[in-house]
Simulated scan of single mutants.
Amino acid sequence: MSDAKISEANWNQLREAANTAMKKAYVPYSKFPVGAAALTEDGRIVSGCNVENASYGLTLCAECSLVSELAMTAVVGKGPAKLIAFTCVDGHGNILMPCGRCRQLLFEHSAKGMILETVSGFKTIDEVIPDAFGPRDLEERA
């Protein structure tokens, strides 16, 4: 998978979905809304926003709610579709890089070669979390 296979129209749709999700963020403490959106291998767009909590440590990142939507919209018995393209924005629509925890979460649900729009351009999931360990490793070692 390369960014050449994801059209500019797809990226525009993802950015729009991420910005829409960002506007729904619950951020009474940090005042830092985040929205995320991803394209699945079956052509759907899933999105999420951050949801803060007074205990801070229980705050959910936008990527967490995106993956929750991915799971909740999966075909029963088939499991969630894999993610092929991802973007994340702040309250001004600027591109954000997912934190390390969220990169691992995205890796878990990514198709091989998933493309992320990052602050330094388009990168594959393997570039943003090199030598990651995930479900493909477990399948290969079974």
Rank of each mutant, 00 (worst) to 15 (best):
residue 61 C to K: 07
residue 11 W to L: 10
residue 29 Y to F: 15
residue 111 A to E: 15
residue 117 E to F: 01
residue 34 V to C: 06
residue 80 P to M: 12
residue 90 D to M: 07
residue 24 K to V: 00
residue 50 N to F: 09
residue 137 D to C: 09
residue 9 A to H: 07
residue 8 E to Q: 12
residue 52 E to P: 03
residue 73 T to Q: 08
residue 86 F to M: 07
residue 4 A to R: 13
residue 128 V to F: 11
residue 30 S to N: 04
residue 23 K to L: 14
residue 92 H to G: 11
residue 26 Y to T: 14
residue 87 T to D: 04
residue 106 L to I: 13
residue 106 L to T: 01
residue 45 I to H: 10
residue 75 V to N: 14
residue 137 D to V: 04
residue 132 A to E: 03
residue 33 P to I: 00
residue 65 S to A: 08
residue 125 I to A: 10
residue 126 D to W: 07
residue 129 I to Y: 09
residue 91 G to E: 04
residue 5 K to D: 12
residue 80 P to I: 00
residue 31 K to G: 10
residue 82 K to P: 00
residue 40 T to P: 08
residue 41 E to Q: 07
residue 114 M to G: 01
residue 105 L to I: 11
residue 30 S to V: 01
residue 14 L to Q: 00
residue 42 D to H: 09
residue 130 P to K: 13
residue 101 R to M: 11
residue 66 L to V: 07
residue 102 C to S: 11
residue 41 E to F: 00
residue 90 D to L: 05
residue 97 M to R: 02
residue 102 C to K: 05
residue 84 I to P: 00
residue 105 L to Q: 05
residue 120 S to T: 13
residue 15 R to H: 13
residue 22 M to G: 07
residue 32 F to E: 14
residue 129 I to W: 00
residue 114 M to Q: 12
residue 138 L to D: 09
residue 71 A to I: 14
residue 123 K to T: 03
residue 73 T to R: 14
residue 63 E to N: 14
residue 12 N to D: 11
residue 15 R to E: 13
residue 43 G to R: 04
residue 90 D to W: 10
residue 82 K to D: 10
residue 53 N to C: 04
residue 90 D to N: 15
residue 24 K to F: 03
residue 91 G to F: 01
residue 52 E to N: 09
residue 34 V to Q: 13
residue 6 I to T: 12
residue 110 S to R: 05
residue 62 A to Y: 02
residue 3 D to W: 05
residue 141 R to A: 15
residue 51 V to L: 10
residue 12 N to E: 12
residue 131 D to C: 05
residue 100 G to H: 12
residue 9 A to C: 00
residue 46 V to I: 14
residue 118 T to H: 06
residue 4 A to W: 11
residue 79 G to A: 13
residue 122 F to V: 08
residue 68 S to P: 00
residue 83 L to D: 04
residue 59 T to V: 01
residue 125 I to H: 03
residue 74 A to G: 10
residue 71 A to C: 13
residue 129 I to L: 15
residue 46 V to M: 11
residue 50 N to H: 08
residue 20 T to R: 15
residue 33 P to D: 13
residue 37 A to E: 02
residue 28 P to W: 06
residue 64 C to F: 06
residue 105 L to A: 06
residue 99 C to G: 13
residue 116 L to M: 13
residue 104 Q to L: 09
residue 70 L to G: 04
residue 2 S to Y: 07
residue 55 S to P: 00
residue 43 G to D: 09
residue 16 E to S: 14
residue 46 V to T: 05
